[in-house]
Simulated assay, not measured.
Amino acid sequence: MNMPPSLTEPHRLKLRIEDFTLLDHAGVFDAYGKVELIDGVIEVMNAEFRRHNRIKNYLTRRLQRALEDIGSRYEAFSESSLALPSHDLPQPDVIVARGGSDDRYYEVRDLAIVVEVADSTVARDLGVKCALYLAHGVPEYWVVAVASGEVHQFWDPGVDGFAARRMVPLEGELTSATMPALAIDGRGLL
C-alpha cells in the first residue's frame, strides 16, 4: 500500500487552539508561566521585568480612560488570549476590544487595536507577530519599542501587507489611526 509522503515522512504536528486549550485546562503549562500558541507551536514567554509590566499597565489604563472619555463601546484589556483560527492563540500585552461576559477567547471581530510592548522582543513583534496579525486581518497593530522610545503603528491590512504605517515618538499624543477620536499621552510611559 502506497501512503502519501505526508503520512510516511516525519512532519510537524501543529496544535489547534482546541488542543492547546485542553492541555491548558489539564494544567500542563502551570509550571511555565505565560505560554502562547503561534503557528501551532507552544512558545514559552520570558518572565516580565518590572519596566515591561509598568509600561503595559500604564498603557492599558490610559487607553481605558481615553475610551471612556470618548464614550466608546470598546475597552482596554491586558494579557488577553486572542483566538486566530486555527493554530494561533497569542496573548498580546494589550488589546482594545469589545468586552463580554461569555466564555470564549477574543477574536478579530472583537478587536480595534492589538498592542505589543517590545523590550527584548522588538524584532519578533515587528516580524513574526506583525505577519500573524496581518494574516488574520487585525485592524490596527502597535509595537511599543522601548529601546527607541517610539510606537510603530500598522493599519489597513491587505494582501500585500499593512497598507499604512507610521512611527510616533512617545513624547506627546499617540492617536489611533482607525479610531481617530482615541488619543493618549505617551509621555511618562517609558
Rank of each mutant, 00 (worst) to 15 (best):
Leu189Asn: 01
Pro180Thr: 10
Ala183Gln: 00
Thr178Leu: 07
Val143Arg: 04
Ala163Glu: 05
Glu173Tyr: 09
Asp110Thr: 07
Glu48Ile: 12
Val168Thr: 11
Gln91Thr: 12
Ile113Asn: 01
Arg62Glu: 01
Glu140Gln: 08
Gly33Ile: 06
Tyr74Thr: 01
Asp19Gly: 04
His87Trp: 15
Leu37Met: 07
Leu89Gly: 01
Leu7Glu: 14
His87Thr: 11
Arg166Ala: 08
Ser80Lys: 08
Tyr32Ile: 10
Pro85Leu: 09
Ile113Met: 03
Leu67Pro: 01
Val159Ala: 15
Leu189Arg: 00
Glu48Thr: 15
Glu43Cys: 14
Lys129Glu: 08
Asp69Arg: 15
Asp24Val: 14
Ala131Glu: 15
Pro85His: 12
Tyr32Trp: 14
Glu36Asp: 05
Asp156Trp: 14
Gly99Pro: 09
Val41Tyr: 12
Ala76Leu: 01
Arg104Glu: 00
Phe77Asp: 02
Trp155Tyr: 02
Asp125Tyr: 04
Leu63Gly: 00
Glu107Val: 08
Asp88Val: 13
Ala145Tyr: 01
Pro180Cys: 05
Ala123Tyr: 12
Phe77Cys: 04
Glu171Thr: 06
Ser6Asn: 13
Ile17Val: 14
Arg51Gln: 10
Asp156His: 14
Glu75Tyr: 05
Lys14Leu: 10
Arg109Gln: 10
Lys129Arg: 12
Ala131Phe: 10
Pro169Lys: 06
Thr21Ile: 12
Tyr74His: 09
Ser148Lys: 08
Asp88Lys: 07
Asp119Ala: 14
His152Ile: 05
Pro157Trp: 03
Gly172Thr: 04
Glu43Ala: 15
Leu23Val: 11
Asp19Ala: 01
Leu126Gly: 09
Glu171Arg: 05
Asn53Gln: 15
